[in-house]
Simulated assay, not measured.
Amino acid sequence: MKVLRGSAIKAIAKTRPAPGAELIDAPMPAPRESTLLVRVGACGVCGSDLHIVDWELGAERMVARLPVILGHEPAGEVIEVGAHVTNFKVGDRVALDPFGHCGRCGPCSAGRFHLCATPTTLSGAFAEFTVAPIGNAHLVPSTMNIEQAALLEPFGTGLHAVEQSCLKAGDSAVVEGPGPIGLSIALAARALGVTSIVMTGLAVDADRLALARTMGFRTVSTGDRDWIDQARALLPPDGADVVFDAAGAIDSPRELLRRGGQLVEVGWPARDLKSAELRALFFHGVTIINSRIRTPETWRRAIAMVSSGAVDLRPMVTHRYSISHGLEAFDLLRERRGVKALIIPSD
């Protein structure tokens, strides 16, 4: 398609250091030497977007960047490449990672790209077009559904958490938090051959737990007084091999884990652990693992799993919005309705 320099595009932006976001007209972006201009096909709405919109949980770190177009889970089509780009071409379909890597720091030199000290970052995808560094872009098959491609970022986070764990085929797991990351963990674990997966959620997560059941997972509501007993009844007698905390609640892992099991922290911890709880985990022999974002190798496997049909991410999408109605998606998240909302700029 022909790029019209100087034309305006529709976008959702954060313009001031206070709660709220705005629908704006922004100038058409242009790619720099090592970047891509991407026409956004779909972009996922993330819980961290809501924190920024509501100006909470560290959102103040963005003050120096305001005004900024939001959105960091997109997929789309390359329509222009920078002068130094050789590994992408116009017409390629790509999924974009909000966290790239420098390739030079200590963690990158050790192959731990997800811990890069100076990562290249991406935002600006709640718009018709966005610019992405080539280190943040991953080629996906042209046959892949664009909505599935936009879900590769959260799925990659879930897959990475499973790969960080000790899980093997035939093992058991508990996933705390039935949101997109929790469901991604469960999908990745099932694809690995994990045979017993229990998902837990709050009483307000009833709709999300119902969706998890339609996807074939067993669920327990932590709003029930006997929820731990319910969960244990669905697990092997000695407990789960791994508990994945995708909610940040760190909710009763010792009661659910076998001795010597693993607690994998994926969600931002939302509370402090009391010393008594830490001692209980210590004497239970629990290994605590922190799992952050993804690696390039995780992306490769995630793309292969989805494109082969081994994993279907589409059931997670419960709501779709045009940019003009995109602000409604934040109300959805705030009220914990639905699971995954997408902004579809062409709608």
Rank of each mutant, 00 (worst) to 15 (best):
P119I: 03
R104Y: 08
N290Q: 11
R32E: 14
G260F: 10
G111N: 04
S34R: 13
L139H: 02
L235G: 10
A341E: 12
R301M: 08
A247K: 11
S172V: 13
A137T: 10
D207S: 15
E335L: 02
A161K: 04
L96H: 08
R232N: 12
I343Q: 03
P98K: 06
T287E: 15
I293Q: 08
V264F: 12
I79F: 02
E163P: 05
S34C: 05
I303G: 06
R259I: 07
L50R: 02
I24Q: 13
G177W: 01
G326N: 02
R190T: 03
I344Q: 08
I250W: 06
I79K: 05
L66Y: 05
I12R: 04
R301F: 07
G106K: 14
R32P: 02
R208C: 08
T287H: 13
E73Y: 11
P345W: 11
A150K: 06
F126G: 06
A276S: 09
T195S: 15
S307P: 01
L202M: 09
V317K: 10
W55Q: 01
H160V: 11
R301S: 13
P119G: 05
L333W: 03
R232H: 11
I134T: 15
D251E: 13
G91D: 13
A270R: 15
A310N: 03
E176M: 05
I289L: 15
K14A: 03
P19H: 13
E56R: 15
A117M: 04
P74E: 12
F88Q: 00
D205P: 10
